[in-house]
Amino acid sequence: MLLEWRQKNVIYGILLYVVSTVFIVYISTGDIRPPVWNILFWIIVLFASINAMVKSFIQENNQRQLYYYQLAHPVAIILSKILYNIGLLFLLSILSCLAMTLVYESPIKRMGLFGLTIFLGSVGFSITFTFVSAIASKADNSSTLMAILSFPIVIPILGTLMMLSANALGLIQDTAFLKDIYTLIAIDGILLGLAIILFPFLWRD
């Protein structure tokens, strides 16, 4: 969906949001250890991504949605939104990682694994948040609903991600991290399949 790219100011807004959050955390905590770094990093990414995702359906007005509806197939719409959001979240995670590295020392020991982790994380977050945002956009109190609906669903993904990144940070020596990666891919796959199957039902309005 190239249309989203037009709203560049929104992206800049989110990126600025990440940087300022990291800075606030930096000012309020001072020096931190790698385990805390891990937790803070994922909390910042989680909240930044929920802020970024809210706009994917909720902040669009009905007329434009009707226009998209006539223009494209619903599956194409959800897929393009998910793909766009994956890119956005990946960028966002890299940026927050960079910002955290700037203010703290980088505790990352295995760069490749960490990169894979944040990529899989952006895929999982993007699928869940995009789909939940589609549900929540139909209601009146949508931003509250968005948080209520998406947080419990995203917790298993978040837990697995934290384990993987703890591995990448060298906090734990787990040789079975491949199993975690497969779990994550499986969860992402299930959620993606469901989102594609169920989205056409949400769209009709």
Binding site: I135, K138, A139, P156, I187, I190, L191, L198, F201, L202
Partner: peptide
């Protein structure tokens, strides 16, 4: 919407 969410929720509780 409740039906859609119910299916989605059930799938996510399996993992």
């Amino acid at each position: 919407l409740a039906s859609v969410y119910n299916i989605f929720a059930f799938a996510s509780i399996i993992p």
